[in-house]
Amino acid sequence: MDSDQQATEVTDVDITETNYTIYRDALAAVLIDKLAEPDPKPKKKKRQRRVKPVLDDLHLDKKVDAKADQATGENEKDEQDLTSPDDVAEFVDYLAQETFDLLPDELQTLAHHVWVADAKLRHRFAGHDDKDKDKDKDKDKDKDKIMPAAPLTAPQVTELMPGLDPSPVADSMQAYGLTGLTGAATKTTRGGRSAADVVAPALSAYLQAVTTPPPAPRSTRDEADGCEICGREHIGLSYHHLIPRFVHAKVIKRGWHRPDELQNVAWLCGACHRRVHQFANHEDLARYYYTVERLMAEPEMQRYAAWASRLRWKKK
């Protein structure tokens, strides 16, 4: 295996792991909302009036009622409850991993730069053809923009995940009351009528997240409360390219990062910005210290940050 092929495979693995986290969070939000919904009240059964029951018939009725009560009890046991946060987290992880693995590879590794380059993919999941947008440029300037993926329906999810239902994961959803039962035992439960109904909003949120363009570096300024290294507030900040611009071409050639990650930035004060570039050269920053967390994992940077956080400017 040559170095370029190996780098591509490593990059795909990184994309898949990142995308799985996005998908799991989206599915968790959907499942928590559905599990929080109150159980519907079962309809009361009408009592049938009996006229002059025969003794033998009465005994027979009692046996039938006993069997019905036993069956009802078994059905109630089949529907389980998630009571602790640990149980919910474990259940979410299980469903997320099982359903994410059912997705086609092209959706597991989907990213904004792939979305932009693949018109067929956009036409399939955005619900319109980009060529048609050129006809109405004067009417709506926003049509020139490449839009993220559109919400999916349950039938679309079924088509994308043919192994979803029936499957063990669909049975688990039913056991916890997220989906409805089928056949003669059909009853109203929390959630949708099928596993695809449960997965559809989560998969829609995931696709919209990975196909939405990343924010421009300067647009993230309002999200920084202070320097992301020393933590000082009310001080001038500038954005630091976590993957230095001078090595962008090399980064893409070697497959160290995806093209859409090149504009990732951290907001730093002047002193910390200079210190970062003194700590490591451009190539090492791109390969090993491409997040603030990775920078702050180094003892040298931790000692510097503790010192810099105590600096205060004298008032004139």
Rank of each mutant, 00 (worst) to 15 (best):
G192F: 02
G191Y: 01
R218Q: 14
A216Y: 04
V199F: 10
S219M: 06
R190G: 03
D197R: 00
V198N: 06
S204T: 15
T212R: 04
P214E: 07
S194Q: 10
V198P: 05
D222I: 04
A196D: 02
A209N: 07
L207C: 10
A202F: 11
A200G: 07
T220K: 13
P201G: 09
V210A: 10
V198K: 00
D197L: 01
P217I: 10
T212I: 08
T211I: 10
R221I: 10
S204E: 12
R190T: 12
G192L: 02
A205K: 14
T211Q: 01
T212E: 08
G191A: 10
A196Q: 02
A200Q: 04
A200N: 08
R218D: 15
P217K: 10
L207A: 09
A196N: 08
L207V: 09
T211D: 03
P201S: 09
R193P: 00
P213G: 11
D222A: 15
L203G: 05
R193V: 12
P213K: 04
L207G: 12
R190I: 07
S194G: 01
P201I: 04
V198W: 03
A200F: 04
A202S: 14
R218C: 02
L207Y: 09
G191K: 09
L203M: 14
T212L: 03
A205F: 06
D222W: 10
P217E: 06
R221Y: 15
L203K: 11
P214S: 06
T212H: 08
L207S: 10
A202P: 11
P201T: 09
S219H: 06
A209C: 00
Q208P: 00
A196W: 04
V198F: 00
A200H: 09
A195S: 13
R190E: 03
D222R: 15
Q208E: 13
A202H: 10
A209H: 05
S219A: 15
A196E: 05
P201Y: 08
S194T: 15
P215I: 03
S219N: 06
D197I: 03
A200V: 06
V199W: 03
A195L: 12
R193N: 15
L207D: 07
T212D: 02
A195F: 06
R218L: 14
A205D: 14
T220C: 02
A200D: 06
